[in-house]
Each structure stands twice: as structure tokens, then as C-alpha cells.
Design a protein around this nucleic acid. Sequence first.
DNA 1: ACGCTCATGTTAACAGCATAAACATTCTGA
DNA 2: TCAGAATGTTTATGCTGTTAACATGAGCGT
Lengths: 212, 212
Amino acid sequence: MSVKGNSVNIKDSPEVSGKGSGAYHHGDLRAAAIAAGMKRIEDMAHPDLGLRALARELGVSATALYRHFPNKDALLDALALEALNRLGISQATAAQAASDVREGFVDVGVTYVKWSVENPALVRLIYDRVGKVDLEADDPSEMGEAFLQLRKGITALMPDNMSGEQRTIAALHAWSLVHGLAMLILDGQVEYDPDMVRKVVQSTEFGSKKSG
Amino acid sequence: MSVKGNSVNIKDSPEVSGKGSGAYHHGDLRAAAIAAGMKRIEDMAHPDLGLRALARELGVSATALYRHFPNKDALLDALALEALNRLGISQATAAQAASDVREGFVDVGVTYVKWSVENPALVRLIYDRVGKVDLEADDPSEMGEAFLQLRKGITALMPDNMSGEQRTIAALHAWSLVHGLAMLILDGQVEYDPDMVRKVVQSTEFGSKKSG
DNA sequence: ACGCTCATGTTAACAGCATAAACATTCTGA
DNA sequence: TCAGAATGTTTATGCTGTTAACATGAGCGT
């Protein structure tokens, strides 16, 4: 029921559901802050959001955001969740479009790298923030849940002629590979070349034809 | 008059580049700053160095460091270089200790992950800083040079029964794999299990027995 | 329609940060 | 010995996140 769960969300505010345009003072500052924050971070290399600058852009005083987020970290968490959802959508789309399992894995991997390259600061934000979340908690946060979903998606892509430990290793291998490749590109160590990315992802045992 | 001569520590710092390392007021503030900075960053998860805090620890005024580094970034660069050298030593040691080529690759990969886990903030610092360096420059910085060395070491580990593009792909695969695995562990997504790390590294084609 | 209350936004203030300018001290070379 | 370079300090500026006190206005009960 909260705003946090959905992709760029302007509903669920006290007034939008009931009436037309009238609202409190601003309208829906929380959603506006997330939208503006995303836009701001999207074209950065490293996520670096200033509360004052963001508030200025929203036409609101510097401290107004504290009515909607307890502190800066909480705002960044909300942004990371939004980013994570977008990444998840991108991954799911790639998975659905693929014809067979092997191709599916390669496509999803390539998509992961591509999305990371196109949204460098969002990827960094995600992993920055998710590091401070307990994924094994009984009551996982929304972000923790979204992330576990992503992990499950990766494991599901592993061929089923493997089993047990083999499967675990393969999934970890796949995730590490694409994540590392993405990070190296983001950090400027490797030039982004889509063909090369595909070849590298295909060079896994489970990504090559001989294992299908 | 509290200049205690050269009793001011700073042993083996491989840095101390530049000057005549005499003892002015402090002794050798540059080397001391690097040593203290390293110690400070070493037991952090994310590198987050404050000039004022560092200066306080060194018993020196907040702005004294500006006599030795033009700004904070320059100090961080010096620390990243130091970290990079340590990583290089760790890698070279692992490479030398291995018996054959295939084992060498696995050992070096495992060592990369191990070192990263043991020095999380230093790894982050390295990749943060190296991203802002032009590796293709005609006059590469010390850091750029150290990093290129690391890259060369990785490629050299690839089996020679490959050639051309195959070799490039394999090297990129290997580097991405260990880097990604290290990052996922650092970000708390994957639990650090040395055995599992070794198995994952071995699960590359060039790390498994059938390719040797 | 009145007034109470709470959600929301504003202003002022504090501590911390990186950094710059002006000043003081101390080392070094001619 | 003495000038100037090297080093460190003081003071000040403008940024940051954050808190506390105050102001406004929407919605609800009467």
C-alpha cells in the first residue's frame, strides 16, 4: 500500500485518489522527490545526490524532504528500490523474449551488462544500498525482497541437467561474470563492446552450445 | 621545540616518492599521512577518509595536508596507488608459488578474491580512483602503470593453446569472474566461502582439467 | 459553519566538511 | 649570515546533513 513498491508512482497520495488536482502544499512530495532523484542520478557516473539541490529543484525548502524520509539514507533506499525494480523488469523482458533456455541465459546476461552500462549510477546505488540490508532477515525489506527475486531469476536460468552443488556453482559463476564485467566497464577498465560482451557470456560452459 | 628527529616511524612505505624526506616540523607528513590513511581505510567497508580527522590523528592542523597534496583526491590517489601495489604483490606471490599454468590461474584468481575480501575498502578505493585515470595516455600516471601491470599479469595466465580473440575473451572472462565474485561478496550478496570460491574459479573452461 | 488537530512546509541554527588566503615559523643554500 | 623556499597555523567561506521551533492549511467531528 505504500508508495515505495511501484515504478514511478504518483498515486496513493492522500488527495490524488479522492479529488482532482488540489493537494496539500506541494502535491505529492515523496513521489516527486523519487522521480526527480531518479532523473538526477540517471545521468551520473556515481550516485551523488544532494538533499538541498534536490529540494531546490522541487521548489521546496531544504528540510521539507524530512517530512517524507527520516534521513538521506532512506531516500537513497527508496531510489535504490525503484532502480532495482527497473532492472528486474529489464531482466524479465529479456528472459521472456528468448526461445530456448541456453539462449535465455545469454540474453539475460547480456541484458544485465547492457542495463548496467546504460545506468551506471543506478547499478552502483543498488549495490551500495543492498549491502546494508539483511537478506536473511525474517521480515525482509521491500528492497531485500526485490533483490532475492533477482537472484532467483538467475538460478532459474541454469540448465536442469545440472543438480545440487553444480547448479549453485554455475549460478554463482554466471552472476559473478556479468556483474564483474559490468563493473569493469563502469570503472573504465574495459571498453563497452556489445559483441565482445556476448562472446564472453557465451564462453561459459552452460552458455555454449556443447552443453545444450 | 618538539621535533623528535627521525623517530617518527614510517618504515617501509613504498611511496615516499619525491623529496628528500628530511624532517621539517613534523618529520615526513606526506608519508605519515599515507601510512595513517591506509591504516584508517583498511578496516572500513567503504573508503571514507576525512582530512580533518586524519590531520587530527597526525597531530597537525587541518590544512597542513595541503602542503603535500593539492586536494583530497590527490591524497586518495596516493592511497590507491599504495593499495594497488599491495594487491600486485599478493598476485605475483600467488603466481610464483603455483606449479603449472592451470593451477597458477586458479590460485591467482582465488588470491584476488581473498585479498579483496580482506581489504574491502582498498579494493573499492582502487577501482574508484582508477576509473578517473586515462589508461591509454601517452604519459600514464604511476597508478595507470600499476594497473596495466595487473592486467598484463592476468592475460599472461591464459593458456597458450588459445590465440587471438579466444585469448582476449578468456582473459576478460577470468577477470570479470573474479572481480564480480569479489564485489558480490563485498556487497554482502554472497557469503565468503573459500572452497566455493575455488570451485567457481575452477569452473571456467581454462581453469578445469579438461582444457589443460 | 466552526474550530481542533495533524500532516505538511518554512526558517534559523549547528556541526562537520573541503578548501583558500594570509600569516608564522623553520630549514637550506649561496 | 641572510634570503627565500618549504612547512605548518589561523582564520574564513561556502558547502553539507540534520534538528528544533514555528507557520499554514486540509479534513474531520460537532
